[in-house]
Design a protein around this nucleic acid. Structure first.
Lengths: 140, 140
DNA sequence: GTGGGTGCAAACAGTTTGCACCTGG
DNA sequence: CCAGGTGCAAACTGTTTGCACCCAC
């Protein structure tokens, strides 16, 4: 928990129990939760926590670069404490979102720059498919 | 307009003026409009057209594969009548969305399949940057 | 004629905002 | 002590739904 306190201080943010809880949760999960999910996981430990605080906190964490926001094409955003640009894969069966190795796109950015006169500063790569568990379900 | 009529019939859809207008508009623009944008462009010609109809129509066109839905990370969806999977680039200055050549990711899917045990069926690639016009603005 | 499509209004989900109170530094 | 954070409720945006009417086939 100290490293998390340090991260927040380093960005000039006040260290509050709510921020610690949210950032800590995001850094120890790989399920790419939505604001709603985060809120539900945390209310039990922080009964006064409100959804508005979760949103506001996610906003500041995003703006300071401590987390990144994903949009895999649902009606809502997901959040990820792994801030290096890396591709995600979405299971169309159960909706879960997992990381893919970023080695996949080693030459991709160069290739894009060659084909456009935009000044490229970021990328989001999403793949869609069926996870092993859902494939099994479909074969039954 | 006949080709559009044919496309709808071919999918077993009733050919209504609203559907013709929406699909026609999408097939002759490259601006990747939102439902709202489509609605605003069409009300002048179809004063009785409602936003609900636009949404319902986009839904059926999407389900029959005549258009695809994009989500570049705004709060809303955009629609594209070019249904081949191709990457998009989003201008962070003015918000416009343009197509990129799909040749960019020729080996990408193979690479992904090698790194995952998901059954991969689709992909969405978004790049973010500044278009030439917005770059110019920033330098002034 | 009838089943599917349309259009209105109302409902809904996710997110944002205003403001009084609270608290970390 | 006070600037900034929190929490509630209300507002807002984008999207969906229920239902009566309409029209393409």
């Amino acid at each position: 928990m100290e490293e998390i306190t340090a991260l927040l201080k380093q960005k000039g943010l006040k260290v509050t129990p709510q921020r610690l809880a949210i950032l800590n949760f995001l850094m120890h999960t790989n399920e790419h939760p939505t604001a709603e999910t985060i809120y539900k996981k945390l209310v039990s430990d922080f009964p006064t926590m409100s959804l508005a605080t979760v949103y506001k906190t996610l906003e500041v964490l995003k703006n300071t670069g401590l987390i990144q926001e994903l949009n895999v094409g649902e009606g809502s955003f997901r959040y990820d404490a792994k801030t290096t640009p890396h591709p995600h894969i979405v299971c169309l069966g159960c909706g879960k979102v997992e990381d893919l190795d970023e080695s996949i796109f080693k030459d991709l950015l160069e290739e894009v720059k060659k084909h456009t006169d935009y000044k490229v500063v970021g990328q989001k790569l999403y793949f869609y498919g069926y996870c092993p568990a859902c494939q099994k379900k479909m074969n039954n």
